Amino acid sequence: MLGALRAAHAGGAVVVGLCLGAFVLAAAGLLDGRRAATHWMFAPALAALHPEVRVDASVLFVDDGDILTSAGTAAGIDACLHLVRRRFGARAAGAIARRMVVPPQRSGGQAQYIERPLPETETGDPLGEVLAHAIRHLDDPGLDVDALAGRAFMSRRSFDRRFRALTGSSPLQWLLAQRVMQAQRLLEGTGLSVDEVARRVGFANGVALRPHFRRLVGVAPQTYRDTFRTGDAFRAGHPTGAGGI
């Protein structure tokens, strides 16, 4: 099969690897030196098995000209509609999307769907206790890196070093990510306005939340709510978020 893929590609065919199909294309050597997508859960495995591939776990699909790769099942539809759009135009892609009852083109990327669990720590580890404290007090605007370092009884420099070793990111970026993730949960499950959601995760208002949310999730808070809200809060009669952005 790998030989057939290489022969088809060499003969000028456009090759598409949907979801875990990227592993097959990588095994065939077709992704060497290229940027490629796969399901976010398996992106680390693809990168480890094929370090010559530039794996991008943040996007729905990658169009590299003669090779396309995508994330999970729905993203495979996105990639195929994109290919139709590229070859036959937006009208054809739109007609197919309507027949399938799917959007012709989704905004954002896989970042909207990625789960980011807390790193595991040993019982009694002061850093682990600091992380748990931070999660419980994300609404406190005074919760910053200096406050966390002080709670761990460490200098800012030592705290930063230990923190990076444990989480793989800086304390500031981790804290911003946790606040954005909590904002995602509130947008999904409540009818709070975006401004109120922002205040409940430690931002002054929705304007302050928006750039961090968009950078980490890939879409604006209101767009995320429209896509992922559960409906429970709305059946309870709460507003949909007047003043949201």
Rank of each mutant, 00 (worst) to 15 (best):
N205G: 00
A149Q: 05
L216A: 11
H137V: 01
Q184I: 07
V130A: 14
A208S: 11
S193G: 12
G128N: 11
H39P: 00
L31A: 09
R85M: 02
V15E: 14
A26P: 03
T227Y: 12
A111G: 13
L127D: 05
D56L: 12
V180T: 08
G108H: 10
S170A: 14
A22E: 07
G244N: 13
A208T: 08
M41A: 14
A233N: 07
P141G: 04
H9S: 06
Q222P: 00
A48S: 08
L186D: 05
A43V: 08
A37N: 07
F213Q: 07
D195V: 04
A132Y: 10
L209R: 00
A90K: 14
G109T: 04
T69P: 01
A204I: 04
G21K: 12
R200T: 06
G72Y: 09
R157I: 13
A92Q: 10
T227I: 13
A79N: 00
D232I: 15
R215I: 01
D146W: 04
L5W: 13
G11L: 01
G241V: 11
P126Q: 13
F23P: 04
G72Q: 12
G17Y: 04
G128W: 05
T38L: 08
G243Q: 05
E188Q: 14
G237A: 14
S170L: 10
D64Y: 09
F159L: 14
G168N: 06
Q184S: 03
L192C: 02
T121Y: 14
A95F: 06
L166A: 13
A95M: 10
